Simulated assay, not measured.
Amino acid sequence: MITSRNFFAAIVVACAISAPSANAATFAAWEVANVDWDDVLNVRAWPSSKSAIRAGYPNGTPLTMTGRCMNGVDLKDIVTLPKWDQAQKVRYTWCEVWHDPTGTGEWQNGWVYGRYIRPQ
Rank of each mutant, 00 (worst) to 15 (best):
M1K: 13
M1C: 05
S4C: 01
S4G: 06
F7P: 02
F7V: 01
F8L: 11
F8W: 11
A10L: 13
I11V: 13
V12W: 14
V12I: 11
V13Q: 08
A14N: 12
A16R: 11
A16G: 14
A16W: 13
A16L: 15
I17T: 15
S18Q: 15
A19D: 10
A19P: 04
A19Y: 14
P20Q: 08
S21P: 08
N23G: 00
A25Y: 13
F27M: 01
F27C: 05
F27G: 08
A28G: 14
A28H: 07
A29N: 11
W30K: 04
A33T: 15
N34C: 01
V35E: 12
D36K: 14
D36H: 10
D36M: 03
D36W: 08
W37V: 07
D39E: 07
V40R: 06
V40P: 09
L41V: 08
L41H: 10
R44N: 01
R44V: 03
A45Y: 10
A45K: 14
A45F: 11
W46P: 01
W46C: 00
P47L: 06
P47D: 06
P47K: 09
P47H: 11
S48F: 10
K50E: 10
S51H: 10
A52I: 06
A52D: 13
A52C: 01
I53L: 05
I53P: 05
R54T: 05
R54N: 04
A55M: 01
P58N: 02
P58T: 02
N59A: 00
N59T: 02
G60Y: 10
T61W: 10
T61R: 13
P62R: 11
P62F: 14
L63M: 09
L63G: 04
L63Q: 10
T64C: 01
T64Y: 03
T64E: 02
T64D: 03
M65S: 07
M65A: 05
T66A: 00
T66S: 09
T66F: 01
T66Y: 11
G67H: 05
R68A: 00
C69S: 04
M70L: 00
G72H: 05
G72A: 06
L75P: 09
L75R: 02
L75W: 08
D77H: 11
D77S: 04
I78H: 06
V79F: 09
W84D: 12
W84E: 13
D85Y: 11
Q86L: 01
Q86I: 05
A87G: 13
V90K: 04
R91V: 02
Y92E: 03
Y92R: 15
Y92C: 02
T93D: 11
T93M: 12
W94N: 04
E96N: 08
V97A: 00
V97G: 00
W98Q: 03
T104S: 07
G105Y: 14
G105P: 10
G105R: 12
W107T: 04
Q108V: 00
N109R: 15
N109Y: 12
W111Q: 03
W111H: 02
W111R: 05
W111P: 03
Y113V: 00
G114F: 06
G114I: 08
R115P: 03
Y116S: 00
Y116T: 01
I117E: 04
P119F: 00
Q120P: 02
Q120N: 09
